[in-house]
Design a protein around this nucleic acid. Structure first.
Lengths: 121, 121
DNA sequence: CCGGATATTTAGAATGATTCTGATTCCATT
DNA sequence: AATGGAATCAGAATCATTCTAAATATCCGG
């Protein structure tokens, strides 16, 4: 656990939203001006593989990262593009029994219109 | 519908697996040596937006494309990396009622060990 | 506390997928 | 045959991400 990794993890832990590598880099530079982009990616990748953080793929944009909490899925608003977390506690078991096979993991992203945008129409 | 688009669609329709833009380009060049990569991407994007084909994101690799058939999800083998289609006919309705909101669409990718790799251990 | 092995960081170059650009070609219509 | 609009082409450009090689930090046994 280097100072750089600690800082990156702190940034992700304190953020209330998903951050791109660029955003993490920008925020990290405020606290540690010498930090390099490669370091940000190195640590994001390492922590992602260790399961400490999650990488989230965004269609037509840079990947986002978030501090891992409990297993959850993602919902993207078709109107404003906001990414939020949703939870379906039974889903893995459900898929597993429908498939008749053990599942290691799954990624689910739902596209819908978020409450804010729905109300605004 | 230009000759190029027709060819690209034919290539995807006749393939028994998901193809990257590069693979489509290679196969298209065999039939039409003057075709350009930009044309392949233009048409893949246009047909994807029109719902005629699907773009499938692959972790750490180029996106893949397939001719659209019925709605289905994807399963990637953690061992050999093979991508196969799976169907959960009830899933969208299920997610919708669990979420209490209308869903426009969703993407689900399951990570597991495919039957071939399972048997081989 | 010291020396050396190992891992990490840094800056910038390199990569790879995809998109953009501007000129050209195609096709349908007049 | 002329016109206009859309699609194509080749190659340059872009963007996110990874790689490289040198410098630095960290850790461990003595």
């Amino acid at each position: 656990m280097t100072r750089q990794r600690e800082l990156i993890l702190q940034i992700l832990s304190q953020s209330d939203r998903h951050l791109t590598a660029d955003e993490v880099f920008f925020l990290a530079k405020l606290k540690m001006p010498s930090i390099a982009m490669a370091t940000v990616y190195n640590n994001l990748n390492a922590m992602n593989e260790a399961g400490i953080i999650n990488r989230v793929h965004m269609d037509g944009g840079a990947d986002c990262f978030e501090r891992t909490t409990d297993k959850h899925d993602h919902m993207i608003c078709d109107v404003c593009g906001k990414l939020t977390n949703v939870r379906f506690p039974e889903l893995q078991a459900h898929l597993q029994s429908a498939l008749g096979r053990e599942i290691d993991s799954y990624d689910l992203t739902i596209h819908c219109v978020c409450p804010d945008c729905r109300g605004r129409r």
